[in-house]
Design a protein around this nucleic acid. Structure first.
Lengths: 255, 255
DNA sequence: CAGTGGTCTAGACCACTGC
DNA sequence: CAGTGGTCTAGACCACTGA
């Protein structure tokens, strides 16, 4: 993986091992990204210095920097002058789009926030769920129904639908005191790339009005979330109904 | 604006004219950005080639490329191999966050879409408006009330509030057949950097139920938009009420 | 102080575009 | 073919960090 100054003796990216046709910096980037996502480079850990990387990949420093800068654009690393480059902690990664989750939202307003799980069911993917989660209809899934309370009052009801093994993992953590998305990022090490959101408005109706302790004729804000990881794989489907008098959803959308 | 190879004879960014303490590439970037936003470089126009820019600013090619790449990250230019760099047409700039507006949404579904303006009023900024638009309370504003129809049925009612001169400009264009945000980008040449969104749910009530031809007890999706330009200046405040049976709002949010 | 990233230069070859 | 951007190199000085 080197290149001579004399005219065309070696083409870029031919050498001992990895001989892709990718540009050099992209190969470096790919290798580092893989190590980060696999976990060989853990969250918060310092990357080797640019000169180390230069030696390791046998490329110029500019090429190393190009790779690092691409990784920075991806949100996988952040660099500090005089200190080094570090693997971003997913939870610290800039939330470009959305407000933080329900719990942070409420706590930021000085309210107590708690969640309760009142049912966990095994279901099979409907056509709609199959489409949103990019799986086959009929695939076994787990559906978790929750209520969330602020200052003791119910504010949100909804359900989370996901693969059974992910459900097991999440239930083993503190799903009652943390957002599903926050949990994914902080505890489980997932890296969210994007979230698909759909909003609408519905009447509370009988069942939800009981759970939220409101009049059946009250309008509720309905939002579905489908977070996708860095490989664009949908992680779960969430369908939430908010009391609009207690919660409004805010977001900043770029460009 | 040059630098010698011999040890420390000139510091970066000292020379005839613009002697900021900014890095060189940032100065080039700033200068080009200003020309784009001012309009001396029009939308879609080809930028000078890298070698021309190199000569013009008397910097190395890498520095020029660094500036261009920063502008690309800002969404102001796009470059094509073998062709050159071009000022992006705002309407072609990638919509990272949001779905396209109401009209495109409806037309993509094969429905006719039209808008009607039924009142234009001069008002003064309330405290809330003043906060959202970053102006002083009491500042004169113009409020435009609209209805939008899909296949002849009313689907959205709402109002747009903005500075009187912007309102005059927008009313001179085809506000009845295009979204305010699309209009800003395509016709007026504004560059949107981000949009603040807030969603909630409300009952239609008497006035809105008449305008939308629905039952007063129907829930409506309420969304407010405040688009900000590249200098983070709020451009207008929009408050829209959607019939949820005719329209759901979708967005993809990054990271 | 040594180590690290931030910026900059001159010069080179390549791939793509369009004449 | 000439022009343009895409990639790469070696070498240099600077500012910041932390022992």
């Amino acid at each position: 993986m080197f290149k001579l100054t004399s005219p065309s003796t070696a083409v870029p990216g031919e050498s001992s091992d990895c001989a892709d046709d990718l540009p050099l910096f992209a190969q470096v980037q790919q290798q580092l990204r893989q190590e980060i996502l696999e976990g060989s480079l853990a969250s918060g850990q310092k990357l080797p210095s640019e000169s180390k990387l230069q030696a390791r990949f046998d490329v110029s420093r500019i090429t190393v920097r190009q790779a690092l800068s691409a990784l920075q654009a991806e949100g996988l690393v952040e660099t500090f002058n005089g200190k080094g480059s570090f693997v971003t902690r997913p939870s610290n990664a800039p939330r470009l789009g959305m407000l933080t989750g329900f719990y942070e939202h409420m706590r930021a307003r000085g309210k107590t926030a708690e969640g309760r799980i009142f049912s966990v069911k095994a279901i099979k993917a409907t056509k709609l769920l199959a489409h949103d989660l990019k799986i086959k209809a009929g695939t076994p899934l787990t559906s978790i129904s929750t209520v969330r309370l602020a200052d003791g009052e119910p504010v949100v009801v909804g359900k989370l639908v996901m693969a059974p093994d992910l459900a097991t993992t999440m239930l083993a953590h503190n799903l009652e005191t943390a957002d599903a998305m926050t949990l994914l990022e902080t505890e489980l090490g997932y890296r969210l790339e994007s979230t698909h959101i759909e909003t609408s408005a519905v009447l509370a109706g009988d069942e939800r009005s009981r759970m939220l302790d409101v009049d059946p004729g009250m309008p509720l804000l309905r939002i579905t979330f489908v977070p996708h990881d860095i490989n664009n794989t949908p992680l779960f489907y969430a369908e939430m109904y908010f009391r609009p008098d207690k919660f409004t959803y805010k977001a900043v959308i770029r460009r």
